[in-house]
């Protein structure tokens, strides 16, 4: 089980309190009607799914009930940082 630090509640809580929100930093296209099918599909279905560093959303369902972002290694599952939605991660790169 993951132990996740919630940047709103300011403490480590067990994974069962959270739900996974998928890849972070995906901006909804401002003018969907001008996009091609391929561009729209890319927004809807295509994700980075990296083997290594991944920026992702988590929702603290039984705590602050807010989304935040985490940088996690998808091979070791280590959570390297958590940060507020709207801010940028400190840790970037793709190394496993």
């Amino acid at each position: 089980m993951l132990l996740i630090y919630c940047p709103n509640c300011l403490e480590h809580r067990e994974e069962e309190e959270f739900s996974y929100g998928g890849e972070a930093h995906i901006a909804r296209p401002l003018n969907p009607e001008t996009l091609s099918d391929t561009q729209w599909a890319d927004y809807l279905f295509f994700r980075k799914n990296p083997r290594g560093i991944h920026h992702e959303m988590w929702y603290h369902a039984t705590g602050c009930r807010r989304y935040f972002n985490a940088t996690r290694n998808t091979v070791t599952y280590e959570i390297l940082e958590t940060y507020q939605v709207g801010t940028q991660p400190q840790i970037t790169g793709t190394d496993a």
Binding site: E14, Y20, T74, V75
Partner: peptide, 13 residues
């Protein structure tokens, strides 16, 4: 498991 991963293991709960 709900999260993406390549580690061939998951969470106990």
């Amino acid at each position: 498991d709900s999260y993406n991963g390549y580690g061939q293991r998951g969470s106990f709960h």
